[in-house]
């Protein structure tokens, strides 16, 4: 059974059909990559899955439960977490606090007014574990704004992990990183593979083909092909519309 299931999602921005009849499924532990040229509507699709944007029609379900009308916060509480293409953190909080507040959101009430939260060992320990998964444990004490761009990308991941998701939605986690840093990040994602069902949007084709169990190709808001990496690599439509350009370049 699929954990996340998207049926006939449509969305227009004025005359622009940004999402055209998109359907896709993600099985437990599966990593489903979505590739496509800039402006294809990938981020908008993630927005509709995470609840940040509302679709015009179609449905999104998590574990068979229709969540199309649920808010972003409700979806996170049900186990659907996302990372942002453009880093979105709490810049004046420490790295640890950025993650600990995500742990806090999933464990117990935030209507506690007196106990010092900084001393809650359970929160800090879980946050350190998520930071370790993202390779940031030695940055825990820094102000989040002091991190490098690549570290910010990893902090995004750590925060998403700390919400204990069933499904991870990652919007270009490698954006703006390159070389060894990107390679190391791919290794981390590989290590996490299987623990979460994941929808991964990524431009780095090497990363996508190394990580994905299944790839869908989005062009002008429409999925033009979907299948195993092998199938996608050899699909003539895909080569023409997308991979062709990449390889020619």
């Amino acid at each position: 059974m699929s954990l996340l299931s998207v049926r006939n999602l449509c969305k227009n921005y004025g005359a622009l059909e940004v999402t055209r009849n998109v359907s896709l499924d993600v099985a437990p532990g599966e990593l489903h990559a979505i590739i496509g040229p800039n402006g294809a509507g990938k981020t908008t699709l993630i927005g509709q899955l995470s609840g940040q944007n509302a679709p015009d029609s179609g449905s999104v379900s998590l574990e068979g439960r229709d969540i199309t009308r649920r808010s972003m916060a409700e979806r996170v509480r049900l186990g659907l977490a996302r990372s942002f293409q453009i880093t979105s953190i709490l810049p004046r909080f420490s790295v640890l606090e950025n993650v600990a507040i995500a742990v806090q959101a999933r464990s117990g009430s935030s209507y506690r007014f007196f106990a010092p939260v900084a001393q809650e060992a359970a929160l800090n320990d879980a946050a350190m574990a998520a930071l370790a998964d993202a390779g940031l444990e030695d940055r825990a004490g820094l102000r989040a704004s002091a991190l490098s761009h690549g570290e910010h990308r990893r902090l995004e991941l750590a925060i998403a992990l700390a919400t204990q998701p069933k499904v991870l939605l990652l919007d270009e986690p490698l954006a703006g990183t390159g070389g060894e840093e990107a390679e190391a990040f791919v290794q981390r994602l590989r290590a996490l593979k299987g623990r979460y069902a994941t929808v991964l949007i990524e431009h780095d084709m090497e990363a996508v083909f190394a990580l994905a169990d299944r790839i869908s190709v989005l062009v002008y808001g429409e999925i033009i092909a979907s299948g195993s990496p092998e199938v996608i690599r050899n699909d003539p439509k895909v080569r023409a519309a997308y991979l062709g350009d990449e390889e020619a370049a």
Partner: peptide, 22 residues
């Protein structure tokens, strides 16, 4: 300095992020 205070300050810093952690 409490859990509540952390959420309050976090919302000041970045409300979208707060929703994105639930």
């Amino acid at each position: 300095g409490s859990r509540f205070g952390r959420v309050l300050i976090g919302t000041r810093e970045n409300p979208v992020r707060m929703e994105a952690i639930g």
